[in-house]
Design a protein around this nucleic acid. Structure first.
Lengths: 147, 147
DNA sequence: TTAGTCGTAACTATAGCTATTACAACCCTA
DNA sequence: TAGGGTTGTAATAGCTATAGTTACGACTAA
C-alpha cells in the first residue's frame, strides 16, 4: 500500500502489464493471460483485461480469443513510450478549471479561466515531454537491473 | 461546468482567491472577506476559508479576526509563484505506484516500483519547474488583459 | 455590548478508481 | 463436435477526494 492512495496508479499498472507481456514473449511464449499478469500485479484479472482493452484500442496491445487465448504486444517495447501509454489510458487533464463558472461580472472571475488554461497547457506539455523520454524498453532495462 | 469534473480545481480556486485579494488590496482595501471572494469564485465561503487556511499555513496569506475581519496577502503577488500555491494545497503526487504491493517473486513485480518512481520524480520535477515560471502577478496581468 | 467574520466540525453529494462476481462469446484441441 | 480455457463486458460495492452546505463557538473592532 502506497502513501497516497488517491492518485492514479493506472499508468503504473499499464506499464507493469505491457512490460510483463514483453518480457514473457521474449522468453518464448506467444501470449500472456490476464490471470498471469494479475498475479504479478497483485490485482484482479478483470482489472487487467479492462486496462488492456484500452491499450488495444490505442494500438499498443492485441488479444486472441478462444482456447489458447491471451494477450500480446502490438509493437515492440522499444517502440512504446510512457506517453503512448499515458495517452491510451488517461482521460482528462491533471488540473481543472472551476466546477461552476465563476462570476463573469468580476474582472478576476472573467479572466482567470483563460489565464490558468494557458499555464495548464504548458504544464501538460512539459509532463508529456517528460513521459515521452522513456520507452518500455528503458523500463524493462531498469527492472532487470534491479533484480 | 468544465469538461472534466474529476481533476483538481483546487489550484485554480487558490490562484483565483489570492489574485482576487491582491487586486482588491491594490484598489485600497485592507482585507477581503471569504464571502466576497466566494461570490467571485461562485462557491461557498467555507470552501474559501478552508483553502485560505492552508495558504496561510504556507505563509502566503494572513487573516484578521473579529469585526472588520478578513484576509490579506502575506507576500506581494509578484513574490508568489504557482508552484508556491501548488505546494501549499496539493497533498500527493500526480502518479502513484500500485495500491497493493505487486508480486515480489516476479522480476517485473519486484523491479517496476523503483523504475516507475524514477520516471515519476522527473515528471513531478518538470511540472514544478513549469509552475514556478508563473507568478500571481503574471496571472493578474493576463486577467486584466482579458478584460 | 453588539455585530460581523473567522475557524472548524459534521454531514451530504458526486465522481473516479479498484475490486469482485457473473456470464455470454469465442475458438483451439482432442 | 464436444470440452474447456480465456476474453469481453455488465453490474455492483467499497474507498477516497473534492466540493458544497449548515451550524456554531471564538474573536475583536466599534
Amino acid at each position: 500500500m502506497e502513501s497516497d492512495v488517491s492518485a492514479n496508479s493506472r499508468l503504473t499498472i499499464a506499464a507493469h502489464t505491457l512490460t510483463w507481456i514483453g518480457l514473457y514473449q521474449r522468453r518464448g511464449h506467444e501470449v500472456a493471460t490476464s490471470e498471469q499478469i494479475a498475479t504479478s500485479v497483485n490485482t484482479n484479472p478483470v482489472v487487467i483485461r479492462r486496462l488492456l482493452g484500452e491499450l488495444r484500442k490505442a494500438g499498443l496491445a492485441d488479444s486472441r480469443r478462444g482456447a489458447g487465448a491471451g494477450w500480446m504486444l502490438a509493437r515492440d517495447l522499444a517502440a512504446i513510450t510512457l506517453l503512448d501509454v499515458y495517452q491510451a489510458i488517461e482521460p482528462g487533464p491533471v488540473f481543472a478549471l472551476h466546477r461552476a463558472t465563476p462570476n463573469p461580472e468580476c474582472v478576476v472571475g472573467h479572466g482567470i479561466g483563460p489565464a490558468m488554461t494557458a499555464v495548464y497547457d504548458d504544464v501538460e506539455a512539459a509532463l508529456r515531454r517528460e513521459l515521452a523520454k522513456t520507452t518500455l524498453e528503458d523500463v524493462l532495462r531498469d527492472v532487470l537491473k534491479a533484480a
